[in-house]
């Protein structure tokens, strides 16, 4: 299987302190991969480096064998919910439409076709009836689903999601997991920053254990072991149910 993402010798530093140290990583095409690690492990930084949002100190990232710039439109990004101002004066549908801006290019405005597409994506995440609601009136789980719908309309081949399951209700969690599986069945590659170690084995088939360095990556059944978790979290892992 070809690799969707290949990271070689990636080092990212803020000033002189490294956030990511010499990361090598292969993400197989079609993988549903969790990125797991303690706070400050560099999970978000890794995603942002893949998206060229930050400039690495060293190393190379290839997406389908090419640099990010030439495949930008095939990468969908779901940032952390808290990264935007939810009091911004706009509606749910409008936020989802933003996912289509890349395809529209400069100046052109979204039209009826785009709105139909955005509505279909909202329907997929169970938010169609809230399309015209002001975004400040959404619950945390609903905000997350809006972000997912926005990524869906991008119709990307790779999705990078930063903690989509953080602080969401049970319904939203189920919806999101179903959605991830649907994406995978469509042949998409999905990387998800994930916090809940209990659910890694049931939700994902690949995992990256990260703590500034890459501790391990590969199929959950092989690398999600107690020994690797100890290496990732130091001595701070007490319960590791579901780890094989």
């Amino acid at each position: 299987m070809a690799n969707a993402i290949e990271v070689r010798d990636l080092t990212v530093a803020y000033r002189e302190s490294p956030v990511l140290w010499d990361i090598d990583l292969d993400v197989p095409s079609g993988a549903l991969m969790a990125i797991v690690g303690p706070n400050g492990a560099g999970k978000t930084t890794l995603i942002q480096a893949i998206l060229s949002l930050i400039k690495p100190a060293a190393g190379q990232i290839r997406i389908f064998g090419q640099p990010y710039r030439s495949v930008a439109s095939s990468v969908g990004y779901v940032p952390q919910r808290g990264s935007v101002d939810w009091d911004f004066p706009t509606s749910v549908l409008d936020v989802v439409l933003m996912g289509l801006y890349g395809r529209l290019g400069w100046v052109r405005r979204p039209g009826r076709d785009q709105r139909t597409e955005a509505m279909a994506a909202l329907d997929q995440v169970g938010m169609a009836e809230l399309a015209h609601r002001q975004i400040s009136q959404l619950s945390g789980g609903q905000q997350q689903r809006v972000f997912l719908a926005r990524a869906l309309v991008q119709d990307a081949r790779i999705y990078l999601m930063d903690e989509p399951l953080q602080g969401v209700d049970a319904t939203t969690e189920r919806t999101i997991i179903e959605l991830l599986r649907t994406l995978q069945s469509l042949g998409k590659t999905v990387m998800v920053v994930h916090h809940d170690l209990q659910t890694v084995s049931s939700y994902f088939d690949e995992v990256l254990l990260l703590n500034v360095r890459r501790i391990a990556s590969g199929p959950v059944s092989e690398v999600f072991t107690e020994a690797n978790l100890r290496l990732t979290y130091g001595g701070r892992v007490a319960i590791i149910k579901g780890a094989t």
């Binding site: 942002q48 998206l51 060229s52 949002l53 930008a72 439109s73 990468v75 990004y77 940032p79 990264s83 935007v84 101002d85 911004f88 706009t90 936020v95 933003m98 996912g99 801006y101 890349g102 926005r150």
Partner: peptide, 9 residues
Amino acid sequence: FDSALCATL
């Protein structure tokens, strides 16, 4: 609203 998405697009 979301300058990160703006950049990635």
